[in-house]
Design a protein around this nucleic acid. Structure first.
Length: 413
RNA sequence: CGGGGUGUGGCGCAGUUGAUAGCGCGCCCGGUUUGGGACCGGGAGGUCGAAGGUUUGAGUCCUUUCACCCCGACCA
């Protein structure tokens, strides 16, 4: 991609109505466009990051036999009434709308009921279980107050997976596989070191549910971390969990964190409420066990910005960066010719390059490359070409090296 | 939803006791520049969030309303 063709532009100033670091930087660098409070559009740059995050999640969900699908945003009222969750007093984030004939519809804030209703059609026998399905969906939640940029919006992208089982034991086994898969996801996203599986308040079937919390000053939650045992407890269940786990409260460090994933064990709750059963090997009807597993894709993007950004701008981890290389061109005809050639060469090797082919001064290009946060910067200039060299500067660390063509390719390969 | 704050060219801001809007950045044209956000000259662009009111006169005062931000509450 050539910078001259990107319709987005960088800005030296952040809009006054954004305080959150993630929103300020993402807007300044041209990754998102704010439509209204808590509602952001993703530009080509932003979409590339989202797709990279989604692909990592997709690969790990597929690796544990998740089957990708996509449900709908429009949901019928009746399905949610069977579990009492249509009621605004039970679920306070509903957006609701009506058909022309006044039939009430809900705009999806979650999909447990919708998934189960669909599965009613397909699950008949124990031979049809277990099954795990997931999707990347835009969730709509009528939050009373949107805040923290893209970290808590009214419209956001979430990966939600649902697994259905014949028994609690089978569900538990899969549940633990998902925890392991989630750990791999956060490792690959560059967040592994600071992400904990935490004990949080549970539902009817488990004492605690599990949340994945990433230490982050911009987060909304308070976490107590036990570094020795690698355990973290959500503040809301602190006393209970400390007693249960037999740990000394004084050994816990209090930190702010952002919830980047959440998993729930519903047991047979949903299927009993909705009357969804399978026929067991005993020939009798049994309720289906259900668990759900979420990862906030757009929130993860915000957390990554918050955690890695420095005074110059965003710093994308290698795996989620919109491009691998930012190619800066300085100088006249000779530099243009060589930079064009290098751009094509790198693209030919499958390396994603953002090529700054604009007629701008060097300082502007360097500053933009840093604000946008591409991991590797390569500079081509008349001066360097006289010695047949290139400059290589990693975004993280920022230490420049002068390299030959072969050395450069080795570095980027 | 309770409390607090802010709305003035694309962005960031100034605008005094009411007198017909200004600065920086950005943008357009011309020229000089070219390794850390260049410089000179010229230019375009605003019914001051909206509606109503007070006044000879409102960006400024009053009322209503909308939007946005922050704190709290909320977060199956």
């Amino acid at each position: 991609m050539r910078v001259s063709q990107l319709f987005t532009k960088t800005s030296k100033t952040a809009p006054a109505d954004e305080v959150a670091k993630n929103a300020q930087l993402l807007i300044r660098a041209g990754f998102v466009y704010k439509v209204m409070a808590g509602v952001y559009a993703y530009t080509p740059l932003g979409l590339r990051v989202l797709e990279n995050i989604k692909q990592i999640v997709r690969e790990e969900m597929n690796a544990i036999d998740g089957q990708e699908l996509i449900m709908t945003n429009l949901q019928p009222r009746e399905v949610w009434e069977t579990t009492t969750r249509w009621d605004d007093d039970v679920v306070d984030v509903w957006f609701k709308t009506k058909l022309k004939d006044d039939t009430e519809l809900g705009l999806a804030w979650s999909h447990e009921e919708a998934i189960m209703e669909m599965m009613r059609q397909f699950i008949e026998s124990y031979k049809d279980l277990p099954v795990s399905v997931y999707q990347f969906q835009t969730k709509l939640r009528n939050e009373l107050r949107a805040k923290s940029g893209i970290m808590r919006g009214r419209e956001f992208v979430m990966k939600d997976m649902y697994s259905l089982h014949t028994s609690a034991e089978d569900l538990d086994a899969y549940y633990n596989r998902v925890i392991e898969a989630y750990k791999r996801v956060y490792d690959r996203l560059g967040l592994g070191k600071d992400t904990y599986v935490t004990f949080a308040s549970g539902g009817a079937f488990t004492k605690f549910s599990h949340e994945f919390q990433t230490i982050c000053d911009a987060g909304e939650d308070i976490l107590y971390v036990h570094h020795g045992k690698n355990i973290a407890v959500n503040e809301e269940v602190l006393d209970e969990a400390v007693a249960e786990l037999g740990i000394d409260k004084n050994e816990l460090e209090k930190v702010k964190s952002a919830e980047v994933g959440n998993i729930f064990n519903f047991g047979t709750d949903k299927s009993e409420q909705m009357g969804i059963t399978f026929t067991g090997s005993d020939g009798k009807e049994h309720p289906i066990y259900l668990a759900s597993y979420g990862i906030g894709i757009t929130r993860v993007m915000g957390v990554i910005v918050e955690k890695f950004a420095d005074e110059k701008g965003i710093v994308w981890p290698e795996n989620v960066a919109p491009f691998k290389v930012y190619l800066v061109r300085i100088g006249g005809e000779k530099a243009i010719e060589h930079a064009d050639k290098l751009y094509e060469e790198l693209k030919g090797k499958g390396i994603e390059v953002l090529y700054d082919d604009r007629d701008e001064r060097p300082g502007t290009k360097f500053a933009d490359s840093e604000l946008i946060g591409i991991p590797h910067r390569v500079t081509v200039s008349d001066r360097l070409l006289e010695a047949e060299t290139y400059e290589y500067t990693p975004r993280m660390g920022g230490k420049t090296e002068v390299l030959t063509h072969a050395e450069l390719l080795a570095k980027l390969g």
